[in-house]
Design a protein around this nucleic acid. Sequence first.
DNA 1: TTAGACATGTAACCAGTTACATGATTTG
DNA 2: CAAATCATGTAACTGGTTACATGTCTAA
Lengths: 180, 180
Amino acid sequence: MNTLSYGLLSLLSFAPLSGYDLTQKIKPLWQAGHSQIYPLLASMEQQGYISYKLIEQTDKPDKKEYTITEAGLAQLRQWVEMPAEHPVLRDELHFKLYSLWLSEPQKAKELLYQRMEFCQSELDRYNEMLGGNETLREERGESHEPKATTFGRYMLIRKRIMDMESSLQFCKYALEELEI
Amino acid sequence: MNTLSYGLLSLLSFAPLSGYDLTQKIKPLWQAGHSQIYPLLASMEQQGYISYKLIEQTDKPDKKEYTITEAGLAQLRQWVEMPAEHPVLRDELHFKLYSLWLSEPQKAKELLYQRMEFCQSELDRYNEMLGGNETLREERGESHEPKATTFGRYMLIRKRIMDMESSLQFCKYALEELEI
DNA sequence: TTAGACATGTAACCAGTTACATGATTTG
DNA sequence: CAAATCATGTAACTGGTTACATGTCTAA
């Protein structure tokens, strides 16, 4: 049971999902490919934290729909209340900034424009997620209280939005400094 | 030559350093232990990107001081101007927020207080680095222009400060929401 | 009919962490 | 003399990425 395993349990605690769905939904939260996820699901199923039933579909290929078990929910609940590890950020841009003096100012600007584009597209995505979460909240008839299943999701999306806005602000600031 | 290798070259392009120094200096920019760094230095030395001379010390154990070569500088210059990979952030807190509804609001607050403490200590460290960089700038008689070796370093530290301030702001906001 | 989304898996490789191993020198 | 810092290395393991492999179903 590593962090990714708990991440998968987190997603399953909100709603039952297939392995394929999980690879899609986890993307904005954790970098992991399907080749990492399928074996973990098999292992968690063997440990009794999740169970699946085969869903036969006519419009799409059949799938395994995973549901979190009581044991899985207990395991997750215990993990959530433990202190979180420090975040790990690996950003090439840090090194490129460090040796920026080697670069033509024009190339440095391009570096920052590229990063801005990335942050903007991320920001757009998270803003869409905010709407999706609000729809879900209404569907579930939930309030804005901390106990609601959609509250933490809302907080998470807000966090990512703030992160991206801050990154954009940095890029704008750095570009101004490079103009001089 | 992976990202970490270029990171080491970046540090060496600013000043000659020992393997031990590099493990210390790289910490705020990239998570990597000495066991990863020493073999990479040996490999880069063999490829001719860096060279070292043995420094005999009386107050401390002897060390190898690595210097970037012309070939290494050319390699680095070429890398710096290439577009940067997207940043990778792995933060357990994301998953813990996602399943926050499973947690007691008091435990959720503790989670955020812990994160705030971490961000504050990081912020303090970067603010100190800002002063150290300014001292170095004066020592080198450099201006605040983009061509100066201390300019990119300044930008990098400013970026990290903005990141930490944004994270702190999120924690404060989330704590307010949890109070209600 | 072919490109793309849906769906699930394994194998090989690379990057990063933890543990093992050794030793100099200083400071309390 | 013990603990802390400086200093350099290797081995084993874990986590993550890329490539290999296969197949369904839909829409253009």
